[in-house]
C-alpha cells in the first residue's frame, strides 16, 4: 500500500517537473517533437532507476555507517557521472540501435537536476531500499508523462499565432504552468 502511495504521488501529485521543478533544462530543450521527447523520457527513467539503487547503496552502506553524510553531495554526483558514463559505453557495445535512440541524451542527463534531486530526496525522506527503487521508477515515468504531454502541446503550438515576445521559452513556461495547474487536481487522490 505504501509503495502504491509513493508511486502515485511521484507520477501525478508530486511530479518531478511540476512540483519539484526538477529537470527543466531537458524539459524545455527536448520537448519540441514527440519522438525525441519519448526517447528522452525513457533515458531519464532508466538512469533514474539505476541512480536510485546506486545512491541508496552508497548512502546506507558507506556514508551513514561511517557518519560521512556531509559527503553526500560530492559522492552522489561522482557516482551519477560514473554510472551514466558506464551505461553509455555498455549500450553502445550491446545495442547500437538503442544507443542511436537515446545515447545522445545520456551525457546531458549527468548534469540534470532530476537525477541528483532523486538521490537527495530519497535520502531526505529516509526511504528503504524497495521504496527508493519504486520512487526512482515512478519519478522517471512522471517525467516521461510530463515531457510527452508538453511535446504534444508544443507541436500544436508551432501552428498557432503566438505574440512575438512570448515565442519560445516564455509560452513554453506558461503552458507548463497551466499543465501544472491541471495536475494540482490530482492532489486529492491521497490524503
Amino acid at each position: 500500500m505504501n509503495l502504491l502511495v509513493i508511486f502515485i504521488s511521484a507520477v501525478l501529485i508530486n511530479n518531478f517537473v511540476f512540483y519539484y521543478f526538477l529537470g527543466l533544462c531537458p524539459y524545455l530543450g527536448v520537448s519540441r517533437k514527440i519522438g525525441p521527447s519519448i526517447s528522452m523520457g525513457m533515458a531519464v527513467t532508466f538512469v533514474l532507476s539505476l541512480t536510485a539503487v546506486a545512491s541508496w547503496m552508497i548512502n546506507h552502506w558507506i556514508l551513514l555507517p561511517y557518519g560521512l553524510d556531509y559527503l553526500q553531495i560530492v559522492s552522489f554526483i561522482l557516482v551519477i557521472a560514473a554510472l551514466v558514463q558506464l551505461v553509455e559505453m555498455f549500450i553502445r557495445k550491446v545495442s547500437p540501435p538503442l544507443y542511436q535512440a537515446m545515447g545522445i541524451y545520456l551525457p546531458l542527463i549527468t548534469t540534470n537536476c532530476v537525477i541528483m534531486g532523486l538521490a537527495l530526496l530519497a535520502a531526505l525522506k529516509n526511504y528503504n531500499f524497495l521504496e527508493t527503487v519504486i520512487f526512482g521508477v515512478s519519478a522517471g515515468l512522471g517525467f516521461t508523462l510530463a515531457i510527452v504531454l508538453m511535446a504534444a502541446i508544443r507541436e500544436q503550438l508551432d501552428l498557432a499565432d503566438v505574440p512575438r515576445p512570448l515565442r519560445g521559452a516564455a509560452i513554453a513556461l506558461i503552458t507548463a504552468g497551466i499543465i501544472s495547474l491541471a495536475f494540482m487536481g490530482f492532489s486529492g487522490i491521497i490524503k
Binding site: 511540476f18 521543478f21 512570448l166 509560452i171 513554453a172 506558461i174 507548463a176 504552468g177 497551466i178 494540482m184
Partner: peptide, 9 residues
C-alpha cells in the same frame, strides 16, 4: 508551482 511557471514565462 503553477504561479511560478506562469510568472517566469
Amino acid at each position: 508551482p503553477p504561479g511560478a511557471f506562469i510568472m517566469l514565462g
